[in-house]
Design a protein around this nucleic acid. Sequence first.
DNA 1: AAACGATCCAACCGCCGCAAA
DNA 2: TTTTGCGGCGGTTGGATCGTT
Length: 248
Amino acid sequence: MQSAAAMDAGVKAQAVVPDEPGVRKGPWTMEEDHVLVNYIAAHGEGAWNSLARAAGLSRTGKSCRLRWLNYLRPDVRRGNMTAEEQERIVQLQARWGNKWSRIAKHLPGRTDNEVKNFWRTKIQPKQKHRNNNNNDCSGAAIESIVVADICSSMAAASRKTPAITEDDQGSSNYSGRTGVTQDYGIVTQQRSISSVADHHLAGNEVHGGGDGGAGAMEFIPEFLAASGENLWAIGDFWTTMQSYQGSS
DNA sequence: AAACGATCCAACCGCCGCAAA
DNA sequence: TTTTGCGGCGGTTGGATCGTT
């Protein structure tokens, strides 16, 4: 994730100019996230267009849905893919093709967007490279090749670097690119702020909507006041949430 | 220290299928 | 049966960040 300053710069660069009057685009602000999470906690998810209107968000229903599913949902698991997850992605992609949502369903906490991004940035370039040197482009062949790569890369990673525990991955102590494997990129970059967020989200320390349970998550004006800046990082969001909950 | 390239990922876009009117 | 609106999915984009030179 990005720092608040980075987010600010990002929004300046990425103009939030609506195609339709009153419809916001671009990065979500902390306030918008607050509104969305709070509304879903109270009313549950679904009926996204009406939800956006009822919540008073100047966003499309699609945008709200995407933000919730890919980012705000408390059970979203962030951070590095484990070797098991990577292997599973390769196997399922070979079996089903680019059915990312279907694949994601078999990876608890992972979103289709995350799986898709992982595939496109890590595995697809590898496949293309292999395809250039190998005429056997069948799914099974590719799968066996890539899985073999994962195994060899993991072995190399374990030789090159100390083991990285789940806790390490999720903590703010684990930040910056690790560069564990240049061949496959098993352990990829982990930005410092998202690490904080990962810790909170992966641990389900804060539970919001999803089940629509009443009172599952409640925000108060102090929280908004604490958010200070218009633009923010998810780590700030949950950290602030925690500090509020801890002090109440 | 600056410039450049590579990488990551949040968010948008367009399309499709389904259900209700 | 047709139209319309919505939800969901996959592809793509663009800015931030990081590593290298």
